[in-house]
């Protein structure tokens, strides 16, 4: 309720609702800097933070779009491993069949993203045409997609057979002219970080400035009203899940090229929760109809920093989940206000 008697408290609440995530980021940043001294403030450290979180970040960006449409995708982690397993296996097969390394790697990259898109489209089809609730349909995907990946590799690891190119994708990057790392070499910003930011910027644009985003918001805010207004609800919802699959494929690519291998039992495990957490921390409403990709990006960094701080402070990994959980709940409480 608007009321001038409550001026300051209300304004404070509004401010936190909108900018709370940035405030939290700055606070955590300060805490990290104090804990680690100058080391933390180095470009290199920041680069590593981005690197480590790029894959989850890409998932979280896609998840933002899904959640804006009042949906959810629990299968992202399994789509990551499935896409990576399919792509890497195909690439290895092509190299074995005598293809040149560049053409095999390019085919592998394309197939990884296609496999992700296919998995996402299956989710979309079940949800839109099968009329299965997104939570249930993608819960099925969570179990099924990883199991297919496990079957492909017999639960083992798929090592990339590309001697140099594939891993160059994961480990290489753009050198920054003005920065050096601790060993005195030019600091590079990795391809995975570049992809993360490119995807985030594109998604933010599409969400706030393009027709697709507008229609997603309309569907998330009130699906019936969207249908009455002539929004092609089924097609848009299908597309957002397919797109999520493509994003999972890209995340799978980032991960498998960084490791130069795919561990079918470990890759992407539990990352659906990290992705959803980042979205929620970033201020996107789980009810749909409102979202912001930039918030999600900050949310990803917040989660990454928390992990770093806890690790450096020697907190047992077993306890880290509890801390993260607390942060997520706090984020929701602070941002609840008028929206949630």
């Amino acid at each position: 309720m608007s009321n001038s008697h409550t001026g300051l408290a209300v304004r404070m609440q509004r401010f936190l609702e909108h900018w709370g995530v940035v405030v939290a980021f700055v606070l955590l940043f300060a805490v990290s800097a104090l804990k680690q001294g100058g080391d933390f403030l180095s470009m290199e450290n920041f680069r590593n933070l981005l690197n480590q979180n790029a894959a989850v970040g890409i998932l979280a960006v896609g998840m933002t779009l899904v959640i804006v449409s009042a949906g959810i995708d629990l299968s992202v982690g399994s789509m990551v491993v499935l896409a990576a397993a399919v792509g890497t296996t195909a690439m290895n097969g092509l190299i074995g069949a005598g293809w040149s390394e560049p053409s095999a790697v390019i085919s592998g990259v394309v197939l990884t993203i296609l496999a992700g898109t296919a998995a996402g489209s299956l989710n979309g089809a079940l949800i839109v045409f099968g009329r299965i609730a997104p939570f249930i349909a993608t819960l099925g995907g969570l179990a099924a997609f990883r199991s297919i990946a496990l079957a492909i590799a017999e639960a083992g690891e798929i090592r990339s057979q590309s001697p140099t190119m594939f891993s160059a994708l994961g480990r290489g990057g753009i050198p920054l002219p003005f920065a050096e790392n601790s060993a005195g070499k030019a600091l590079t910003i990795s391809w995975s970080t570049v992809i993360f930011f490119a995807v985030a910027i594109a998604a933010q644009w599409f969400l706030s400035r393009a027709r697709f985003g507008r229609q997603l918001v309309a569907i998330g805010a009130n699906e019936t009203a969207a249908r009455y207004a002539g929004v092609p609800v089924a097609w848009i919802r299908f597309r957002v899940y397919a797109l999520m699959g493509a994003f999972a494929g890209i995340a799978g690519l980032v991960q498998s090229s960084r490791m130069n291998s795919v561990s079918t039992s470990q890759l992407g495990l539990g990352s659906e929760l990290d992705a959803i957490a980042a979205v929620v921390i970033g201020g996107t409403s789980l009810r749909g109809g409102f979202g912001r990709v930039w918030g999600t990006v900050v949310g990803v960094l917040i989660l990454g920093m928390i992990t770093n701080i806890l690790t450096i402070s020697g907190v047992s990994p077993y306890w880290q989940g509890a801390v993260k959980g607390t942060v997520i709940v706090l984020a929701v409480l602070v941002q609840r206000g008028s929206r949630a």
Binding site: R209, R211, A218, A226, G230, V231, G289, F290
Partner: peptide, 27 residues
């Protein structure tokens, strides 16, 4: 109507195609 969305968004939703540029990539 979408009561939680802005007047502008509500206004243009049914005729969104007429506000689309670059195949919908920009409104």
């Amino acid at each position: 109507l979408h009561v939680s969305l802005s007047c502008i968004v509500n206004m243009t939703l049914p005729s969104l195609d007429a506000f689309s540029q670059l195949a919908g990539a920009r409104l």
